[in-house]
Design a protein around this nucleic acid. Structure first.
Lengths: 136, 136
DNA sequence: TATTCCTGTAACTATAATAGTTACAACAGG
DNA sequence: CCTGTTGTAACTATTATAGTTACAGGAATA
């Protein structure tokens, strides 16, 4: 199972999208909703900011989305947090002297790529707005 | 990224399927092809055996598949090694006092389920025989 | 200006997953 | 017996993840 960063990122973005009172929207407040540490939140927000999904100003409470929820696909969020394009790890340096070992990496890459594409399609089909609609 | 057990399992099963000289097929030989420790191989084989995919006899070299490669889907292998049905972790105990926190877990479960189904379909569509064909 | 609240970030710690390793009991067959 | 093998428990090393402490610096305001 992959880590919970993707979940936390979606949670944070949902809060930013739905909280109208910006002065309330501090990393401390967000951390209280996510149930984690404010630094973990600020760290994640730094990543999302770097990816161009939101803005913030040092010293001032509040964050703003730079992309409309309906235009923000879950795939874009996934990429923002640097989610891997390969779901399954492939073991290192299988034996090239063995006919299976020689070709297994390339073969598995093909298999995993088809799996990843199917996943990708799902992530692209859903936006932050869809998530917000379900949160109501 | 998920661990490499799935890759190792497929590698091991491929070797068992393609090695005709059973006396050669020891955990040591397999470990040499995978490039890992024989105990790691025996451990994994124990798991696959428990799932009913192969047999072995204590003290005797050689393993035998119990399912025809063409009938063995990658999904079955994935399930055998207890691959999680949920790809992404969801953070624990979001704040129920917050409207987002209250519903985020359920919402994300729905999102991740649709992603998992797409993945599942791909894993079910490919068999060990497909892998063997590509290894040639 | 001093105070307060906030962001941004570095550095450290704790925990858990993963894989690798050592060790050894038990089985098979010459 | 002796050798080579499987099956398993137990331990270690490495890494990823998340949580935490600490603090520099911006912004607003009394």
């Amino acid at each position: 199972m992959v880590n919970s960063r993707f979940s936390v990122a979606i949670h944070i973005l949902s809060l930013i999208a739905t909280t109208s009172d910006k002065s309330q929207l501090t990393s401390d407040f967000i951390a209280g909703s996510v149930n984690t540490n404010p630094v973990v939140v600020r760290r994640m927000i730094g990543v999302l900011k770097k990816a161009g999904l939101l803005t913030s100003q040092s010293g001032i409470a509040g964050y703003d989305l730079l992309v409309e929820p309906k235009d923000l696909t879950l795939l874009a969020i996934y990429h923002a947090i640097d989610g891997p394009e390969q779901l399954f790890a492939i073991h290192d340096e299988p034996n090239p002297a063995c006919s299976v070992g020689r070709k297994i990496q390339h073969t598995l890459e093909g298999v995993y790529t088809s799996v990843w594409y199917a996943m990708k399609e799902q992530l692209q089909a859903q936006t932050l707005q869809d998530v917000l609609d379900q949160l109501r």
